[in-house]
Design a binder for these strands. Structure first.
Lengths: 186, 186
DNA sequence: GTCTATAATTCGATAGAC
DNA sequence: GTCTATCGAATTATAGAC
């Protein structure tokens, strides 16, 4: 029936949304299926029915696309700022990166997923824009280190000075760093 | 008795060393008192006897001193590289920062400890060396973001390109960034 | 100081009625 | 599709014998 199909889809989505929130705030081990089900206002056994087990639920919740913008049209001087701004937006409007960051520290599959995301989505951008010095991987890794470190301090550890910096200040400071990692010679 | 006092001290130290290792590799929630006791080759109940509960054991294991060097004598141009080199050494020879990093993602007390460490140990260095622009806190936060991001990618997430970078390459790339955050004008 | 036994929870997962 | 009941395992923590 189309009626029940739509309803089970809504239930699926409710579970996924609740799972994302819980995993993002508590990390993989502290987020319990019971709590996720309670947030979604459904029975815990429904979570198992739809997703089989906790690991598969997490995998579904950790699906993520960086949605990196096309930087080829952006002036070389602005390319770093553009990148920082994009990441800031991406974090503010989507919990998935926080989820991955929190969980990857203690959950090996989450760490692997993080590796995949940066290898498959960030590296191509670096290859496209960076100088042909065969240091693409290192450049992508360095960008990841600064970007993830910023997210870690701002959203996970909540270091006061990093939390208090407004958007423009962050862009002004970190933009040139990413530009250096992305397109400048070492 | 001096005899038993020495023995209980050794036991205490064995527990602490095992705890540091387990917390560093597994994070707070996955590291169990049983596993720590097994590593230290003592009975689990001894851990409770000496440290009361898991939280206090963690607090003891998370005691950490960045041991930041005196940078006032270092040439301004080298100050960033010196800082990166110091952190790399500190990580290689001590698990405590990895322990904090892994645990802080899901354990609030660990995150607080991280805040304390950077506020009480890194901020003074920035105040001492940075330009008098009243941006000390922001500078310290930015340094923390890059340094912790590097550690996260290299030791926790194990992003291949960041793991594969040798010491000199890291210093060459990240040194100038830390110098900028530490002493340069925005 | 050391160890056994176990209490008290909590969690992921399953079985089965409706 | 939904819910109740519960299993089995693991964990922190305690009580108490030796």
């Amino acid at each position: 029936m189309a009626e029940t199909a739509r309803r089970s889809d809504r239930t699926r989505q409710a579970i996924l949304a609740a799972a994302r929130e819980r995993f993002a705030t508590d990390g993989y081990e502290r987020a319990t299926i019971r709590a996720i089900a309670a947030d979604a206002r459904i029975d815990p056994s429904m979570v198992m029915r739809y997703y089989g087990n906790k690991e598969r639920l997490f995998a579904a919740a950790a699906e993520f696309d960086l949605q990196l913008p096309n930087l080829t049209e952006v002036p070389r001087a602005e390319v770093g700022k553009e990148l920082v701004a994009h990441f800031l937006d991406r974090w503010e409007h989507d919990d998935t990166l926080k989820l991955l960051l929190r969980s990857a520290a203690t959950n090996p599959p989450a760490a692997e997923r993080m590796q995949q995301i940066f290898a498959s989505q960030l590296l191509p951008v670096v290859i496209l824009l960076g100088p042909p010095d065969n240091q693409f991987a290192a450049r992508a890794g360095l960008i990841a280190s600064q970007v993830l470190g910023l997210a870690l301090c701002r959203y996970v550890l909540a270091l006061p000075p990093v939390v208090d910096m407004d958007r423009e200040t962050v862009i002004e400071w970190v933009g040139p760093v990413l530009r250096r990692y992305l397109v400048e010679r070492a």
